[in-house]
């Protein structure tokens, strides 16, 4: 735990702060990962910068072609947002699976990425939504695809003192869903999960993004499976073939939460269920409208 807490109110103030002596500073947002990690002796930083007051990191706004989600947006704020409901169906469906209601009031979406846990629900869904992430260091900005932000379990491409400022997600018409298999229905850590975003043209898949969590060192973009679905009719048979294919793309491990073989099998099951649910929802909306 730190000796010095700095609490800038703007990004300008942040970049005027002196460098931390003898090591990098730690950014404190929701605190749910940093604090519990520090408590367990996993962090020895002397200087923490509390970024919860930085106004540029807050809020969800819309541009002509994208949504900009501030990295300081809390998970519970995502669930209340009309913009998220309208444009990001996979992310919306991931929120109830994200920890517990009180943790959702604390944790931020930026922190979910920064922690870079292979099982993170929020960023898995955001990858399927084709999000980019905005990073800033000393006022210099750069944007990269979120899927390229992770370099390993708990590792990212963030440079020393670099800050995640926002996620930029394109607005595109698509169906989306997030399914998670944990030890219980809610408030569990995933054994495997899948986020699917499908751009449909009638019954045909125009384009697909499929991201899996907990079955590879970083959120896994199942590119082969997505390419298989592209241009095909979305039906139960093709969903089954896609499920078989995705099992060849994942690289799960055995750990405290599950076994590699089970995770591989469940990756297929979850994807098939996710695709089937899009088929059913599509049929129902046709009936309805």
């Amino acid at each position: 735990m730190p000796e010095l807490i700095l609490k800038p109110g703007t990004l300008k103030e942040l970049w005027l702060l002196p460098p931390a002596p003898g090591g990098s500073r730690k950014y404190l947002a929701g605190g749910t990962d940093l604090v519990s990690g520090s408590n367990a002796g996993m962090d020895a930083s002397q200087v923490w910068v509390d970024i919860s007051d930085i106004k540029e990191l807050k809020g969800i706004r819309e541009t002509k072609n994208s949504l900009i989600i501030g990295s300081g947006v809390k998970i519970s704020e995502l669930s209340g947002s009309g913009l998220i409901s309208r444009w990001l169906p996979a992310l919306r469906s991931a929120i109830p699976h994200f920890a517990s209601p009180s943790l959702r009031n604390m944790a931020t979406i930026g922190g979910n990425a920064a922690t870079a846990s292979p099982c993170a629900d929020g960023v898995c869904a955001l990858c399927a939504e084709r999000a980019d992430v905005w990073l800033e260091l000393g006022g210099k900005k750069r944007k990269i695809a979120l899927q390229n932000f992770f370099s390993g379990p708990k590792k990212t491409v963030l440079r020393r003192d670099e800050l995640i400022t926002a996620f930029e997600v394109p607005k595109w018409k698509h169906a989306g869903v997030y399914l998670k298999l944990g030890p219980r229905a809610y408030f569990g850590i995933a054994k495997a999960s899948v986020a699917v975003a499908l751009e449909l043209d009638g019954e045909k898949v125009r384009s697909a993004s499929i991201t899996l969590a907990s079955v590879s060192p970083v959120p896994l973009m199942a590119v082969k499976t997505a390419n298989y679905l592209k241009g095909r009719v979305l039906n139960y048979d093709n969903a089954r073939t896609a499920a078989a294919l995705v099992k060849t793309e994942v690289s799960p491990i055995t750990d405290a939460r599950s076994e590699a073989a089970y995770r591989r099998e469940m990756s297929g099951v979850l994807l098939e269920r996710a695709l089937n649910s899009v088929i059913l929802t599509g049929r129902m909306s046709q009936v309805a409208g």
Partner: peptide, 8 residues
Amino acid sequence: KENARLKA
């Protein structure tokens, strides 16, 4: 303003 810097 006080928030800007808390020093132990």
